[in-house]
Structures are given as C-alpha cells and as structure tokens.
Simulated assay, not measured.
Amino acid sequence: MTERVLDPATCFVVQATDRTEMFTKVYQQLFEQGLVANGFLEEVIQREEDYPTGLDSRNLGAGLPNLAFSHTEGCFVKKQRIVPIRLLEPIVFKSMVNPEQELPVGFCFMLLDDKADGQAKLLSQTMTYLSQAGVSELKELFALTKPQEIYDFLAGRLSF
C-alpha cells in the first residue's frame, strides 16, 4: 500500500461536549483535505446512532479510557485512513456490545475506507495493536495532547 493510512494531518485533539460536535469538527478538516465526501457527516452521525461503536476498555487494562471506532459507508469516503481522535473531555457513546449502555469515551479511532470490507480490516489491525500493547504504553498514548505526538507515537506501532 503506497498511501499512508496514518497521517499527521488526520490526528486530532478535540474539545467537544457531544458526538455531533466532535464529528462536525473532525469532518470539517477531513472534508477540506479531500478525504470524505458530502454527506459523510450526516451518515457517520446516523450510523453511530444505529450501530454504536463504543467499547469498554476494561479488557485492555485498568485505568484506560473507553474507546470508540466510528465509521460509515465507503461511498462517503475518498481515501483510506485511521483517524485517531483524543477527546479532552469524555463524550458519551453507546456500547457496541450492549447498545443500552452509555460509555464515557476518551479516545476515538475513526475508520475511513472506500471499500466495502475496509473498515473491518482497519478495525482488526487497530484492535490487534491495542490488545497487544501493554497498559503503560496505552496510558502513554491516551495521555498525549498534541496531534503530532499522537502521530509520532502510533506511526511506529500500527502496522499496515
């Protein structure tokens, strides 16, 4: 793959009060970079409502923030990317395992892929990294507060 799946321009640190505000802030940057199409914002918001992506992080280790893995249909995506989003304050997502459960999420990996099965591959690769990394390594990642630091940290660790 010649295209970079992780890019410093698509690593974010976001202050938002809810999912819609977070998605809007990230969408504006992704759209300006030509990575997503018109309609992406509405679709990612709706898909999160219909198919929640929050994940309780207790299985990864104690003291880690809950995670989310937002994505939408490939027709709204122009380029493949993993978009790490550090949330300065937790935002409520519903659990992918139990959609009735609300989780305060501190870190989101937005998965962009223009292929039908692409998100599954990106999710699998991201989850493999998260499950194999030690708790101290993940705490270090989730504490970073600058986009470039997040990119530098993940660039050598996520393999594609």
Rank of each mutant, 00 (worst) to 15 (best):
K139G: 08
L60M: 10
D56K: 05
L112C: 03
Q148N: 13
N59S: 12
L154Y: 06
M96G: 04
P147S: 04
L87I: 10
L60V: 11
E137N: 10
M110L: 12
A62W: 06
K146D: 15
P90L: 04
T53W: 02
S124M: 10
Q101Y: 10
K121L: 14
K79Y: 00
V135C: 02
F142G: 02
Y51C: 11
T128W: 08
Y51V: 12
L103K: 10
A143H: 12
D56C: 12
Q80K: 14
P104S: 10
Y51H: 14
L67S: 02
L141V: 05
Y51K: 07
C75P: 00
E149A: 15
L122T: 01
L144K: 11
E100M: 09
D114R: 01
Q119I: 13
K115N: 07
C108H: 01
S136E: 15
V92H: 05
I85D: 12
I82D: 04
G63C: 07
P147K: 13
G63P: 03
L141N: 01
A155T: 09
Y129D: 06
E137V: 15
Q80Y: 06
F69W: 05
V97R: 10
S124D: 11
G134Q: 14
G74M: 02
F107Y: 15
E102A: 12
T145G: 15
V135Y: 01
I82H: 05
S57C: 11
C108G: 07
L154E: 03
A68F: 03
Q125R: 14
S95G: 00
V77M: 00
K79L: 06
L103R: 10
G63M: 06
E149N: 14
E137K: 13
C75Y: 13
S131T: 14
E89W: 10
Q125L: 08
P52V: 08
L60C: 08
F153L: 04
G106S: 11
L87S: 01
L87H: 01
I85S: 06
T128N: 10
L60N: 03
T128Q: 11
F69H: 02
A133N: 02
P84S: 04
A116G: 01
L60Q: 04
V135G: 00
A68H: 04
L141H: 03
I85W: 13
K94M: 13
Q148C: 04
T53Q: 03
R86P: 10
F93W: 09
G118W: 00
L138N: 02
T53D: 03
G106M: 06
G63K: 07
E137F: 05
V77H: 00
V92N: 01
L154C: 06
F153I: 07
K121I: 14
